[in-house]
Design a protein around this nucleic acid. Structure first.
Length: 510
RNA sequence: GGCCCGUUCGUCUAUCGGUUAGGACACCAGAUUUUCAUUCUGGGAAGAGGGGUUCGACUCCCCUACGGGCUACCA
């Protein structure tokens, strides 16, 4: 039975999409592309108390920005299995919960929060694992312990109830994880999880199984945090009679924080200077702002590439991949089992690679915006900005750095690099500098070659080696200790500007 | 605590019983660039520990240690 590959990304709209979630989405997307299948987006909003306004839109916008877009689902024109928002599928789940009750695989439970708490405390006190399971359910208020008419009365009476799965007392549950191989659990260690909540909504466990079945999902690719509940899902497929159509499971390794241990969290990003979210997010309740990759200057292609390599590798030496190449190369059996630490340096490097691949005109347009923002009123020609962008292209890791590597092209520096001045400047050099300025002023054609030639002539006349003077000369022109090739820069800003810059240096240098 | 998953250079990783354990980022050194960066060359850097299995283990098994995840009417 060869079913069309269908995978889904099923986040909960409880806040901004975590970068680990983005990677999960990416792997699902790549897997679908690789196999000519469908990638869909389902919103798992069964917990109405955790709803966060804007979160769903954020998820959709993030996927859009990265270009890992679903072919069906919320925000993508829905599709044959609409709706794709679980809160809108509420009515569907009840019947499956009832089916399980009727088949004896689930039961009603009427315990109050206090009663549950009491049970847990009792068991803990006697040093026993506190869980609602095959043993403890016999002491609780449920349709297994209460007389039939009492259950009926409570139900008719509208008493609050949940539906719990009835797990066998002791049974081995084995399943094959595409990444980890065979994994086994014993129901003796599991508890009778709630499938259907008293507010009429299913829990994740029920909803996820029902929807994956109904939406014909063939492969479940999700984070490792779901591994412990996978046996429950396996059992659910079995009890619902869907074992033959059960999707395969793949549990992805977690993204860890760069220092120390533990899962990458929101706070790590702000502390260590890299984003944990794809897009900037403003918390609607606290107003707190969390930075995003997009706003931090990362290119979507770079984010895709670096994320793909956090937990997967192609087994070749190639590191730079387009999305299409990734889809072609991707396979679940090359996903690693252990958690990956986020590495800021590598992330920067990836971004730098992609910035370099940007064509000069794109870079120029970005720089143009920055120039407009920083130098209001001053008009620079597109050609000038284009050349400036070309000059500093190799230096930047992020497009937002374009300005900070080139600002001295657009404005005459007010101060000169103090370190270089204190090390390389001597008042005796002043006449030489003045002579270079005059020589420049006297030039007709002011190309990079001409400027350099004239500069060298003056130095030679004064018996000075360029090696000793060049950096100081750079500082006089740009204020900076480093920068793009100096005479190309001089030619770009032009004779008049060079003259003004040298004049300025002459006045402030001792 | 219990259950489950994991453990190769600082980091991401290759190796699917036999390799001088390879690459990338980062780092260091040298070369080039009359400056900085780029680029090039070179370098240091790893199989958690202990038992097995085997002619031979990073690779298979067990134990220990360490790390992580889960342990809600959250996903």
């Amino acid at each position: 039975m060869d079913r069309k590959v269908r995978v889904r990304f099923a986040p909960s709209p409880t806040g901004p999409l975590h970068i680990g979630g983005v990677r999960t989405a990416l792997y699902n997307y790549l897997f679908a592309k690789k196999h000519g299948g469908d990638f869909l987006l389902r919103i798992e909003d069964t917990d109405q108390t955790r709803f966060v306004p804007g979160a769903e839109e954020y998820i959709i916008e993030s996927l859009k920005w990265l270009g890992i877009e679903p072919v069906e689902g919320v925000g993508y024109g829905d599709g044959p299995h609409a709706p794709y928002r679980q809160s809108e599928r509420k009515l569907i789940y009840k019947q499956y919960a009832m089916q399980l009750v009727d088949a004896g695989h689930a039961y009603y439970a009427f315990d109050t929060a206090e009663e549950l708490e009491g049970m847990r405390e009792r068991l803990k006190a006697s040093n026993v694992d506190a869980k609602y399971d095959a043993i403890t359910r016999g002491t609780m208020k449920n349709s297994l312990t209460l007389p039939e008419d009492e259950v009926k009365r409570r139900l008719e009476n509208g008493d609050q109830y949940v539906i719990r799965i009835k797990l066998p007392r002791k049974e081995e549950v084995k399943f094959f994880d595409e990444i980890r191989g065979w994994v086994s659990f014993n129901t003796s260690q599991m508890d009778d999880k709630v499938l259907f909540k008293s507010d009429g909504m299913p829990t994740y466990h029920l909803a996820n199984v029902v929807d994956d079945y109904l939406m014909e999902i063939t492969h479940v690719i999700r984070g490792e945090e779901w591994l412990p509940s996978a046996p429950l899902h396996v059992l659910l497929y079995r009890y619902l009679g869907w074992e033959d159509n059960r999707p395969s499971f793949s549990h992805l390794p977690l993204l860890l924080k760069p220092e120390g241990n533990g899962k990458l969290s929101k706070r790590d990003g702000d502390r260590l200077g890299f984003p944990v979210f794809p897009l900037q997010w403003k918390d609607p309740f606290s107003g707190e702002i969390s930075s995003g990759y997009r706003e931090s200057g990362y290119l979507p292609e770079a984010v895709i590439n670096l994320l793909a390599f956090l937990g997967w590798n192609p087994g070749t030496q190639q590191e730079l991949f387009t999305k299409e190449e990734l889809a072609e190369a991707f396979s679940l059996d090359r996903v690693s089992k252990s958690g990956a630490k986020f590495d800021l340096n590598k992330a920067k490097w990836f971004n730098q690679q992609y910035v370099r691949m940007l064509d000069d005109q794109t870079l120029a347009n970005i720089l143009e915006n920055q120039v407009k923002e920083k130098t209001s009123g001053v008009d620079f020609s597109k050609e000038f900005i284009f050349k400036a962008a070309q000059l500093v292209k190799e230096k930047v890791s992020f497009t937002k750095e374009l300005w900070e590597y080139s600002f001295f092209i657009f404005q005459i520096p007010e101060s000169l690099d103090e370190q270089v001045v204190s090390k390389k400047w001597k008042p005796e050099l002043k006449p030489v500098l003045a002579e270079i300025k005059s020589a420049f002023d006297a030039m007709n054609k002011f190309t990079a070659e001409d400027a350099e030639r004239v500069y060298l002539e003056v130095l030679e006349k004064n018996g000075i080696q360029s090696k000793q003077f060049l950096q100081m000369f750079r500082v006089c022109l740009t204020g900076q200790a480093g920068g793009p090739p100096l005479f190309e820069l001089a030619a770009l800003v032009g004779k008049e500007s060079c003259s003004a810059r040298l004049n300025h240096a002459l006045t402030i240098l001792p």
